[in-house]
């Protein structure tokens, strides 16, 4: 059993990570942190830089929870990758960050979060970044 969190180097990703650490501490389970990208643009702001990724690892080490981190660039959809990892690790909870969006914006942009919510077997905890 594990908690799987999809991390993005943004406020909502940060919020998701913080919340996932809390949950993992409470439940005493292993935490799997995932940062994935389709790798189809020259630059993907959702893909953590080396420095950023180090900060995530440092935070996890400091929290004392048992954890595992994985970063990957794969042709498939990031949501699918998250779901697959959740299945493989037999996740009891998936934590994702949610951007604040209007319904129309959502329609045009599609969303990884939606795919995860619709297709995940495990319960999904969706976290938004705190309002400024």
């Amino acid at each position: 059993m594990a908690i799987v969190v999809g991390y993005v180097p943004r406020p909502e990703g940060q919020a998701a990570l913080d919340r996932a650490i809390e949950e993992a501490t409470l439940r005493g389970t292993r935490l799997v942190v995932l940062n994935v990208s389709r790798g189809d643009a020259l630059v993907d702001p959702r893909y953590a830089s080396a420095a950023d990724w180090d900060a995530v690892k440092a935070k996890l080490d400091a929290s004392g929870v048992e954890h595992e981190v994985a970063q990957a660039i794969e042709a498939r959809d990031p949501a699918d990758q998250l779901l697959r990892v959740a299945e493989e690790t037999n996740a009891e909870l998936i934590v994702i960050g949610l951007r604040r969006r209007t319904p129309v914006g959502k329609l045009i942009m599609g969303s990884a979060a939606q795919t995860v919510l619709l297709e995940a077997e495990a319960p999904v905890l969706a976290v938004k970044a705190p309002k400024e």
């Binding site: 189809d40 042709a75 959809d77 329609l107 045009i108 942009m109 599609g110």
Partner: peptide
């Protein structure tokens, strides 16, 4: 070229 967001 590999895009799969059909609506977009």
């Amino acid at each position: 070229l590999g895009a799969r967001h059909y609506v977009r």
